[in-house]
Design a protein around this nucleic acid. Structure first.
Lengths: 235, 235
DNA sequence: CCACGTTTTCGACCAGGAGGCGAAAACCAG
DNA sequence: CTGGTTTTCGCCTCCTGGTCGAAAACGTGG
């Protein structure tokens, strides 16, 4: 079996880390992209990332590279998506990439370099390599986790009303969400707690909304999944 | 930042693929391990795998390496677990590994090389590198997916009774499972279908059990997860 | 200051999913 | 035919989540 490949010893490959950084803007998810200034794929938009360093694991590496594009303090959550290793996912030399999902709250608007911008996921520009597909993977992961974890904390401000949170969830999921149900589900799971404060009504009046916050700001799988629990464990 | 590292160009690393191959034996999960005959970690037990090749993606690679240890036709399911990249996960030179989960049905008993054997996960021998932790990750993944996917097809024989399937699930999950509930849940989801046949009673007599099979032999997430469905989608 | 529109909140209702239990069914052995 | 054994099935209950509508709590305009 040919182990050669351009540049490098047999069985070794350039390893990149990439981040799908998502944020809800204008009632729709957006992803952080930067425009390539060199070949290959000059002018196309790519995910933030870079080479894995010698003394870091992939998560440390993606945080280091991300810090060059945004203030890391604004990124509320990071998790691994998976490995993308198709030999033809880009022009030679071959590259293997570990992709991550990153989330930024709506109230944060981190400064970004000139070559970098947020792009609505429903109107992606021409993307480099397989970064379009990786972005879709990241969005799918976010949508799945919204319903069985407390991952909303990474999209929402510290304090918010139920209506605001509903709009956030609706934007991320891509369909309408009932405020009644959202509040009940999240409260019953203990991920949503009232602060006691109330928000001022809008210009048209209306009852003042209660202000909530997430009880935890680290990811927690609230549902030990549905079926086949141990006996005596009544949900 | 030092990009050197032993042997290799800056930013390139040896990339391995590894497989946590699980199979239910004697009412407990076992993992396929082989005993290292060379340093480092001579004599310790390691997961099957090897170097990523130049013309294959990681999944093709893990299947190729796995074929050296077991008949691939016996492996009913393969999926990616994630990347393990701690710089100190093993002695230098540094290696990055993509781990997979593989499942073998109980009725298959593939021939394995002399250096290879099944080991109960509750009595693991001294493992090489971080392979013990990776094995635990694989088992966790299996347990989670048993409750919200049809992944049982990869552990069970083609045909089986509900009692046999209950024992299989109980072994994999590590706790008792109700046959009544198991049959109801899986049937309602449409993953379990009766063949019409019945199995002969055991030596002590008893009502003959109906024989079932899985309706599909590819992974399917049966539960579009619990909460926050689109309106009108009544579960 | 009172009627009206607006927004939020809360309770009630309903369906579906899942765990628990016991009776009935279907077999074997003596 | 009686007793032991195993499987199967129906019934009950709890919990979760979707839906709806009434009530609460505001502004505004007459």
């Amino acid at each position: 079996m040919d182990d050669g490949g351009a540049g490098g010893e047999p069985g070794t490959f350039a390893h990149d880390v990439l981040a799908v950084v998502l944020r809800i803007t204008e009632a729709v998810p957006s992803v952080l992209l930067w425009q390539r200034a060199r070949e290959p794929h000059l002018g196309r938009w790519a995910l933030p990332g870079g080479r894995l360093g010698a003394d870091e694991d992939v998560e440390a590496s993606v945080r280091r590279h991300l810090a060059e594009k945004v203030d890391l303090a604004e990124v509320a959550h990071v998790e691994q998506l998976g490995v993308f290793s198709d030999p033809h996912r880009g022009p030679p030399p071959r590259r293997v990439a570990t992709a991550f999902l990153g989330l930024v709250p709506t109230d944060a608007d981190p400064a970004v370099p000139d070559d970098t911008a947020w792009h609505r996921v429903d109107r992606l520009p021409a993307t480099a390599f397989d970064h379009g597909a990786i972005t879709r993977d990241g969005l799918d992961r976010l949508r799945a986790k919204l319903s069985y974890t407390n991952i909303g904390f990474a999209l929402a401000p510290d304090a918010f009303t139920v209506s605001e949170l509903r709009d956030l969830y609706a934007a991320a999921l891509g369909h309408r969400v009932s405020a009644t149900n959202l509040q009940r589900v999240l409260t019953r799971r203990g991920v949503l707690v009232p602060t006691g404060a109330t928000a001022a009504p809008g210009p048209a009046g209306g009852r003042p909304a209660a202000v909530f916050r997430f009880s935890e700001h680290v990811l927690r799988v609230t549902d030990p999944f549905a079926a086949l629990r141990p006996p005596g464990d009544t949900g």
